[in-house]
């Protein structure tokens, strides 16, 4: 099931990128996609159970529009700071996440980097180290909105108290 979905994904990418639809090129595509799917199925999405793969994909797709809006807001924030650099209040924030699994954490790390005034510096286990560019950005991070949305997208629970403290450095 996992290999099949990977194959479909790869073959779709092949079709779009090659742009040739004659039998020879299609055959090449099928062979290459099958080979890559066979070799790399152990690397991708190994921790999501096969039957939940579709649901998880749909969750991520629903998560993207909200992320795009946040990205635009982030950019307007940076534009504001470029015009007024004296408003900068950089700070380093550490917090623990309750998200499980690499995919969820990678998604959270990338989303943090892209959204208002925050960059993921380091992920060690479940501890995130984040650089925030201003007080507003740090406050937004502490509210844990992003984490909840990713948890909902991937059908994990992210409720209960969370330890958040500003870093010593």
């Amino acid at each position: 099931m996992r290999r099949l979905s990977l194959f479909v994904l790869l073959f779709a990418a092949w079709l779009v990128l090659s742009g040739h639809f004659d039998p020879l090129h299609l055959a090449f595509g099928v062979v290459c996609s099958a080979l890559v799917a066979r070799l790399s199925s152990g690397l991708l999405f190994t921790e999501t159970p096969s039957r939940r793969l579709l649901a998880a994909t749909w969750g991520v797709v629903r998560f993207v529009p909200w992320l795009l809006v946040e990205i635009v807001l982030a950019n307007l924030h940076v534009v504001h700071l470029v015009c007024r650099p004296e408003r900068l209040r950089p700070q380093v924030v550490r917090f623990r996440t309750r998200l499980r699994g690499d995919v969820a954490r990678v998604l959270l790390g990338n989303a943090i980097t892209l959204t208002p005034g925050t960059i993921t510096l380091d992920i060690e286990g479940d501890e995130f180290t984040v650089h925030a560019v201003s007080d507003i950005a740090a406050a937004g991070l502490r509210s844990g909105e992003m984490e909840r949305r990713i948890a909902r997208a991937l059908d994990q629970s992210a409720t209960g108290p969370r330890a958040t403290e500003p870093a010593a450095d």
Partner: peptide
């Protein structure tokens, strides 16, 4: 770090 904010977000 602040430069990376500008680079990472605006460029993307």
């Amino acid at each position: 770090y602040t430069r990376m904010h500008a680079a990472g977000k605006c460029d993307t």
